[in-house]
Design a binder for these strands. Structure first.
Length: 775
DNA sequence: GAGTTTGAAACT
DNA sequence: CAGTTTCAAACTC
C-alpha cells in the first residue's frame, strides 16, 4: 500500500482549494461547507483513527491528515514535523497556511524531503515544511486542539465522526470512509478554506519547493515540467509526487505566462488524469503505472474537458481535477462500498456456495466465513432451525444415545440427504442474506438479534450446532464430549436451569429428548422472558458455572481477591455423598477443584479440594486449577494427601493429575465413560476474551494459567465476571439485561474452533441473553 | 432401557 | 437463610 497516490490527491486537493474555481464551485455546491466543523471532524476523526491509519495505510491517513493539518495550521502555525505522511498533510496545511497567509516560510529542504518521500506537495506543500513538521507533531495534538482550542469550530458532527471512526482503516480510501454526503461536504469545506486564498503569491513561493527543481523563470518552468515529466515517467511509485509537482508548476505558469500555461495545462491535464486515477483508485496500487502510461501516451493532455486556455485554466484544471477527485472519491467510495458489498456478498455467497457445494463441510466453510460476519451466525441459527427440522423429517431417529458421533454423522447425513434440499436452501438463503429468516424452520428464531445475537448465539450454535455439532462430534473422538448439549427434560419444558440446554443458553435441538420443549426459536419470546425472570433472581444464573482464566489474562491484576487458581466453580458444590468424585459434583464436572465456597462433604475432588490439597492438579505446567486451594487453605474437609495420591495413581487420576489439562482430557476422562461432557459450563478468560463453554472440553490454552481463580465465593464470581475483563463483562452485561453484549471478543473470542459444540458458544452467556430481543 | 442416586434448582 | 420439593443428569444394573 503506497501512500503516494493519496498524497497526490491531497496535493491536488490543496491546489484546488487554492484555485478560485473552488470557491466558485463551493458556492455552487448545495453543500454547506462548514469548514471548521468538517475539519474539526476530520481532525477529530483523524486524531482518533489517524494513528493507526497512518501506519496502516498512508493513503487514508494522508488524506485525513491533510485535513488535519489544515486545521492545525490554522490553529497552530508553528510546529515542525517530519513524517512523510505529515508531508501530505502539509500540503493541505500549507495551503491553508497560505490562505491564511500566516505561514510564509518554505523549506526547500522539506520540499525535497516531501518529494523524496513521494509525497508531492502542491502549491501549499511548497509553503510550509515547518508546518508540516508541526503537523506531524500536531496529529496527536490535534485532539488537544479540538478539546481545548477555542479556535476550533464546534465539535464534529457525530455522523462524520462516526464515519471517520468507522473507517476500516487503511484500506478504505478517504472517500470510502466518509459517507457520501459528508464526504462531499467535507471536501468542499476544505476547498472553501483553501479557496479564498487560491493562488497565493506564497504559493508560488511554494512553488519554490519546486524551485529546487524549477527556477522561477517561466522558461525554467517548462524545463522543470519536462524534468518533472521525466521524473514521473521514471518513477513509477513517485508518479503521484510528480504530479503534484506539476501542479505547482502549473500554478506558476499561470502566474507567469499564458503560453507556459498551456504547457502546464497539458501537463496539468496529465496530472489530472493521474489524479483522477488516483482518486478513482485510491486503493489500487497499480495506478502509478497507469498514470505513467497515460502521461507517456499524452492522453493526459486531452483528457480534461474542463481545461481552458485562460490563465485560469490552471485553476480550472485544478477544479476539474478537484472535482474529479471528489467524484472519483465518491465513486471510489461507492466502488469500495460496492466492492465491499460485493465482497461481502461474494464472500457470503461464496461461503454459502461452498457450503452448498460442500454441505458436509459446512462447518469448515462456516468457520471460514466466520471471520466475515453474521453469516455464520445466520448459519448457526439455521442450524438450530435445522435441528428443529428434525421433527419434520423425523430424522431424529438418531438421537444420540450413546454414539453421538454416529448420530451426528447420521444427522448430518440426514440433513444433507433427507432434508438436504430443504436445508440447502435454507442454508444458502441464510448465508446469502445473512439472515435466517429465509429458513422456514427458523421461523421466529431470534429475529431481533441480527448479527450480534446471531453471532453469539450462532457462534456457539453455529459452529457447534449446525452441522457443527454433528461434525464436531464426528471430529471428536468418540468419547469426547461433544460440545453439544442435549437435554432430556420431561417437566421443565426446558425453560428452567434444570435444562442444560437452557442453562447453557442454547436452544434445544434434535439430539434433545426433551418433552414439551419450549426452548426453541419458535418460542423465543417465552425463552427470553423466562430467561429474564431467572436472571432477575440470579444475574449469574446463566453465567458459566466454572470460570477459568487463561494465563494471558491479567486476571490477578484485575482481581486482587482472586486466588491464582485457574478455575473455580462459580458457587461451589454441595456434594454430600459423591465426595466430589462424580459428575454429580459440578466442580468435578467442570473439571475444577473445589474451593472454599464449596460446601461439600468429604471432598475428594481430584481437581482440587477445598483444603487446597488439590495436589493433583498441579500437573505439568498448567496446573493451577487449584493452586488456589492452598490459598483457601481451608481444610474444612481436609482430605488426606493419600487420597490425592491415590487419585493420581488411578488412571483417571492421571487426568486428575493435570487437572487443567486434564480438564481437557479430564473431562473426557471422567465423562468419557459416557462420552458426555460435563455439564458445567466453563468460562475461560483469555486475554482476548473469555469463553464460557459448557464443556471444558478442549480447554486448549485456556486453562492454564492463570487466573487465580479464586475459589470464588459466590460474590467473587460476579466480580470476576464483571470486573475484570471485558469478557466477563460481556457475560454479565448480557445476562442482566438479557441482552447480549456481544463483545467481539466474546463472540469471536474464542476461536470457535475451540469449542466444537455449540456449548462453547453458548458459554458466552451472552449468547443466550442475546436472544433477548432488546434492541 | 429402566431404575436409582445425586445434587442443583426451585420453591416455601 | 434454611428447609423442602422438584427436577434432570449421572449412575447402576
Amino acid at each position: 500500500m503506497d501512500t503516494p497516490e493519496r498524497n497526490q490527491i491531497n496535493t491536488t486537493l490543496s491546489k484546488f482549494e487554492d484555485s478560485p474555481v473552488f470557491n466558485y464551485i463551493n458556492n455552487l455546491s448545495p453543500i454547506r461547507p462548514v469548514k471548521s466543523v468538517h475539519i474539526t471532524q476530520t481532525f477529530n476523526s483523524l486524531s482518533f483513527s489517524s494513528p493507526p491509519s497512518v501506519f496502516t495505510s498512508p493513503h487514508v491517513s494522508s488524506f485525513k491528515e491533510s485535513r488535519f493539518l489544515r486545521r492545525h495550521i490554522l490553529l497552530d502555525t508553528s510546529k515542525p514535523k517530519d513524517s512523510s505522511e505529515d508531508v501530505n498533510n502539509k500540503v493541505y496545511s500549507s495551503e491553508e497556511a497560505i490562505a491564511d497567509s500566516t505561514l510564509s516560510h518554505l523549506n526547500t529542504n522539506e520540499l525535497h524531503e516531501s518529494s523524496d518521500q513521494g509525497i508531492s506537495v502542491g502549491n501549499g506543500s511548497v509553503e510550509l515544511s515547518s508546518e508540516h513538521a508541526k503537523f506531524s507533531d500536531e496529529l496527536p495534538q490535534a485532539l488537544q486542539y479540538n478539546c481545548g482550542s477555542p479556535s476550533y469550530d464546534p465539535p464534529l458532527c457525530a455522523d462524520e465522526a462516526n464515519s471517520l471512526l468507522e473507517l476500516p482503516g487503511e484500506g478504505v480510501s478517504d472517500a470510502a470512509y466518509v459517507p457520501d454526503g459528508c464526504k462531499t461536504d467535507s471536501i468542499e469545506s476544505e476547498l472553501h478554506l483553501q479557496g479564498p486564498s487560491q493562488i497565493d503569491p506564497k504559493e508560488e513561493g511554494a512553488d519554490c519547493d519546486w524551485a529546487g527543481l524549477i527556477p522561477n523563470a517561466a522558461d525554467l518552468l517548462i524545463e522543470a515540467e519536462a524534468e518533472a515529466f521525466k521524473g514521473l515517467m521514471q518513477k513509477p511509485s513517485g508518479s503521484s509526487i510528480r504530479l503534484s509537482d506539476f501542479m505547482p508548476l502549473l500554478q506558476q505558469s499561470t502566474n507567469n505566462n499564458d503560453q507556459k500555461m498551456y504547457m502546464i495545462k497539458s501537463v496539468a491535464s496529465g496530472s489530472e488524469h493521474e489524479i483522477e486515477n488516483h482518486c478513482s483508485e485510491p486503493v489500487a496500487l497499480a495506478d502509478t503505472d497507469h498514470i505513467q502510461d497515460n502521461l507517456a501516451s499524452g492522453s493526459l493532455m486531452t483528457s480534461n474537458p474542463n481545461e481552458q486556455m485562460d490563465d485560469k485554466l490552471v485553476s480550472v484544471t485544478h477544479r476539474g481535477i478537484r472535482r474529479r477527485c471528489l467524484d472519483f472519491e465518491m465513486a471510489s467510495v461507492r466502488r469500495k462500498n460496492s466492492d465491499d458489498n460485493s465482497k461481502t456478498g461474494s464472500s457470503t455467497t461464496q461461503s454459502e456456495v461452498s457450503n452448498a457445494a460442500n454441505e458436509k463441510q459446512l462447518l469448515p466453510t462456516k468457520r471460514n466465513a466466520d471471520s466475515q460476519r453474521c453469516i455464520l451466525p445466520g448459519i448457526g441459527l439455521h442450524l438450530n432451525a435445522l435441528a428443529t427440522l428434525k421433527d419434520h423429517k423425523g430424522l431424529q431417529n438418531e438421537k444420540l444415545t450413546s454414539g453421538r458421533q454416529l448420530s451426528l454423522s447420521n444427522s448430518t447425513s440426514l440433513l444433507l440427504s433427507t432434508c438436504h434440499e430443504h436445508q440447502h436452501l435454507s442454508v444458502l438463503s441464510v448465508s446469502i442474506s445473512s439472515e435466517r429468516e429465509l429458513d422456514p424452520s427458523d421461523n421466529g428464531v431470534q429475529p431481533t438479534e441480527d448479527c450480534s445475537q446471531a453471532s453469539a448465539y450462532m457462534a456457539g450454535e453455529d459452529f457447534n450446532q449446525n452441522s457443527p455439532k454433528k461434525k464436531r462430534r464426528k471430529s471428536e473422538p468418540a468419547g469426547e464430549i461433544e460440545g453439544c448439549k442435549r437435554c432430556n427434560c420431561k417437566k421443565s419444558k426446558c425453560l428452567k436451569l434444570y435444562c442444560e440446554c437452557f442453562a447453557a443458553g442454547v436452544y434445544c435441538i434434535e439430539p434433545c429428548s426433551c418433552q414439551e420443549c419450549f426452548n426453541k426459536p419458535i418460542h423465543e419470546d417465552t425463552v427470553l422472558q423466562t430467561r429474564k425472570q431467572i436472571e432477575s433472581r440470579n444475574p449469574l444464573a446463566f453465567a458459566p458455572k466454572v470460570i477459568r482464566s487463561s494465563e494471558s489474562v491479567p486476571e490477578v491484576g484485575d482481581d486482587p481477591n482472586k486466588t491464582p487458581a485457574s478455575a473455580r466453580h462459580k458457587r461451589g458444590c454441595n456434594c454430600k455423598k459423591s465426595s466430589c468424585l462424580k459428575k454429580y459434583c459440578e466442580c468435578y464436572q467442570g473439571g475444577v477443584g473445589c474451593s472454599i465456597s464449596c460446601r461439600c462433604e468429604g471432598c475428594k475432588n481430584a481437581f482440587g479440594r477445598k483444603d487446597g490439597s488439590a495436589i493433583t492438579e498441579m500437573v505439568e505446567g498448567e496446573t493451577e486449577e487449584e493452586t488456589e486451594t492452598s490459598d483457601k487453605g481451608v481444610a474444612e474437609k481436609a482430605i488426606q494427601k493419600t487420597e490425592i495420591q491415590s487419585i493420581e495413581d488411578h488412571p483417571d487420576s492421571a487426568a486428575v493429575s493435570t487437572p487443567l489439562r486434564l480438564s481437557r482430557p479430564l473431562l473426557p476422562m471422567p465423562f468419557s465413560s459416557k462420552g458426555k461432557p460435563p455439564r458445567s459450563f466453563v468460562t475461560t478468560i483469555t486475554g482476548s476474551g473469555y469463553f464460557a463453554s459448557q464443556k471444558l472440553a478442549k480447554p486448549d490454552s485456556l486453562w492454564p494459567q492463570s487466573k487465580p481463580f479464586q475459589t470464588v465465593p459466590d460474590n467473587e464470581m460476579p466480580e470476576i465476571l464483571r470486573g475484570d475483563s471485558s469478557p466477563i463483562a460481556c457475560i454479565k452485561t448480557s445476562s442482566p439485561n438479557g441482552k447480549r453484549i456481544s463483545s467481539p471478543n466474546c463472540e469471536m473470542g474464542s476461536s470457535p474452533s475451540r469449542r466444537g459444540g455449540r456449548k462453547l458458544i453458548l458459554q458466552s452467556i451472552p449468547s443466550f441473553p442475546s436472544l433477548t430481543p432488546h434492541p
